[in-house]
Amino acid sequence: MHELSVCIALMQQVERIAQEHDAGRVERIVLQVGPLSGVEAPLLEHAWPLAAAGTLAEAAELVIENAAVKVECTQCGAVSEVAPNRLLCASCGDFRTRLVSGDEMLLASLELSQMNSQPVQQQCV
């Protein structure tokens, strides 16, 4: 259960970005988590309130997008959607494939509310 560690790291990241944008509140946090990331979405959702309590992201909606596991065959070039523990090419069966999706563990985007009505000129990180 390392998801709490991940949430605490995420919280630090979110606070830093919110500060850079002069935001008063974080409204929405979108994550991307693939089955091969080593992180479980339901566990993240459970751990999140502990990390967010008392912060400017306390009331934020946490959205976790799942990514399918896809491999590209280095032998025949086919791209197939596969099971996390069977990364073989669905077309030719070769094991020499390259993962193109499914190990994502990303903070994809944030929605922020401003402290004041001044439009923010600063570009995103």
Binding site: V6, A9, L10, Q12, Q13, I17, H21, A23, E27, R28, L31, V39, M105, L106, L107, A108, S109, L110, E111, L112, S113, Q114, V120, C124, V125
Partner: peptide
């Protein structure tokens, strides 16, 4: 966004501090 929120695309690893 429609509600006047600012949407920021980040695309950072969740473990970027680590």
């Amino acid at each position: 966004t429609d509600e006047g929120r600012e949407a920021v695309t980040v695309l950072q690893s969740l473990l970027s501090e680590n």
